[in-house]
Amino acid sequence: MATKQVKTLKIDGMDISSIQGSSILEVAREHDIYIPTLCFVEGLCAVGSCRLCLVEIEGSGKLLPACTTQIYEGMSVITNSEKLLKYRQMILSLMFAERNHTCAVCVSNGHCDLQAMLQILHMDHIKVPYMFPRLKVDATHDRFVMDHNRCILCSACVRVCDEIEGAHTKDIEGRGIKSNIITDFAQNWGDASSCTTCGKCVQVCPTGALSEKGKAVSEQLKRRSFVSYLKSMREDVL
């Protein structure tokens, strides 16, 4: 295999070099530069859908998602600015307003990535009116619960189920604001015969949308390192 080329770039003024093909996010993380993310899960395909990781590229007016944009020679990335903060706050507001995130009564209260993001982005209120949709809670599965009220449609569960577990039990139905996570033929999770009850989706879900039954709020901590581990194992085999 040909050796990969090294590219040099700047992130927030710091000179950095890394191998070709890496994303801005990967390189930033290697160097402990924090960029907010919600839809990105290490080991799964990056989709660029939550838009929180948008960064500025000097000399280009466009904002680009750090999770899907590859580095190139001489690029200069700004990961934090007043403009970016303002945009990220509005995007997070839109996420909160879309469904019903009442943290006080949520199983993930205290260890939810969405909730934590409020603090990271210094927010004490939501900038847009809540939409209060009426959504279902699917508790038909033996071990897990899906609460659509808490879902931010990041598609991590869909991806892990397809890319890592290979079951493809989950997908998205509809489009636009009517998008919704489904299991098999949009049926109850408990009746979805393709589900292997592996629980990977629960682990990658950044919110309380997917949770384990019979566990106290304090026990709902999620573990995700298995994803990149399984992915690298698989790559070795191939």
């Binding site: 397809d162 079951a167 493809h168 039990t169 989950k170 997908d171 998205i172 139905e173 489904i182 299991t183 098999d184 033929f185 949009a186 393709s194």
Partner: peptide, 8 residues
């Protein structure tokens, strides 16, 4: 094809 994909 997975059922969920066709439905999606």
């Amino acid at each position: 094809l997975p059922l969920s994909k066709v439905y999606g």
